[in-house]
């Protein structure tokens, strides 16, 4: 009896097919990532103050964070761009692999594959920069990671945030196939602002003029009241509720988006 949900052999064949079909795009993306990384390293080296002899990693990390976030969002939003044209849609749906394998395949490519490649490129760029500053400017690198990733917000938490961002854009990619990145980004903003505005309506209904300002609330976390410095007050959710919210955000929201993405792809028809 054939397993119609998942087969490791079929999964391998699907990934092989995807990589073979799109290898030129992938090579171009890798070249672009590498060129961008090395370009930034060279630019930073060229603009380095000659008196600066201590280069802090915490000054470089924001560039890494911005570009990693950008690439994750960009690639996740292109997860299902094969569905943009009817012919490609037919090819996608009629390929004898399960729906789960197809969705998982896109996930592996747009998150795992992109993350690995991005980190390789980032490592090459960093090594280039380090070699240049050490050799030509006689500077030393200070590895002060903890300035950017303190114990309360570790690198693991950052990766979890990227996983969430990827899940949101992956889910968005099941709605938009063309110019998906700006469309998903816009919808994501509307969604976040929507939550905030609903919260504003509720807090204004409950607290009225007691609020510090009509918009002073953090959805699911806090409400700020009091109009002067002496009477400012923050209603923060109790710790147990805060932890419950955090748990939902960390461990339930992301899988929920994956499951929704899977069912949205499963239910697609070709008109």
């Amino acid at each position: 009896m054939q397993n119609n949900f998942f087969s490791i052999n079929r999964m391998g064949m699907y990934l092989r097919k995807e990589i073979s079909d799109n290898y030129k795009t992938y090579l171009l993306s890798i070249a672009l990532m590498l060129a961008l990384g090395v370009g930034i390293a060279l630019f930073a080296f060229a603009n380095l103050n000659q008196w600066e002899k201590e280069i802090k990693v915490s000054h470089i990390l924001p560039v890494y964070i911005i570009f990693f976030t950008l690439f994750i969002g960009l690639d996740a939003s292109r997860s299902f761009n094969a569905l943009a044209k009817t012919e490609r849609r037919m090819d996608f749906f009629l390929l004898p692999a399960s729906k789960f394998e197809k969705v998982l395949g896109q996930y592996l490519i747009t998150f795992i594959f992109v993350s690995v490649i991005f980190h390789c490129c980032a490592w090459v760029s960093f090594q280039t920069y380090q070699s240049l500053v050490v050799t030509y400017k006689q500077a030393v690198m200070i590895y002060d990671w903890d300035q950017v990733f303190p114990p309360k917000f570790t690198y693991g938490n950052y990766l979890q945030l990227m996983l969430g961002l990827h899940a949101a854009f992956f889910f968005g990619a099941t709605f938009f196939y063309r110019f998906s990145f700006p469309k998903i980004f816009f919808c994501f903003l509307i969604f976040l602002f929507g939550i905030w505005f609903i919260n504003i309506a509720i807090t204004n209904a409950l607290f009225g003029k007691a609020l510090h300002d009509w918009y002073t609330n953090l959805p699911y976390f806090a409400i700020f009241t009091g109009n002067d410095r002496m009477h400012n007050f923050a209603y923060v959710v109790p710790e147990w509720l805060g932890r419950a919210n955090l748990f939902i955000a960390q461990f339930l929201l992301i899988p929920a988006l994956w499951v929704l993405s899977y069912f949205r792809i499963s239910d697609k028809e070709i008109q």
């Binding site: 119609n4 087969s7 012919e87 009629l94 004898p96 399960s98």
Partner: peptide, 26 residues
């Protein structure tokens, strides 16, 4: 349901075709 056991035993030649940018042997 578009199960793999179904898809591997049915082939559609559509009117408009999609072919990837590869050689026949690939």
């Amino acid at each position: 349901q578009r199960n793999p056991s179904f898809l591997q035993d049915i082939f559609l030649v559509p009117e408009e075709l999609y072919l990837p940018k590869v050689k026949i042997n690939q």
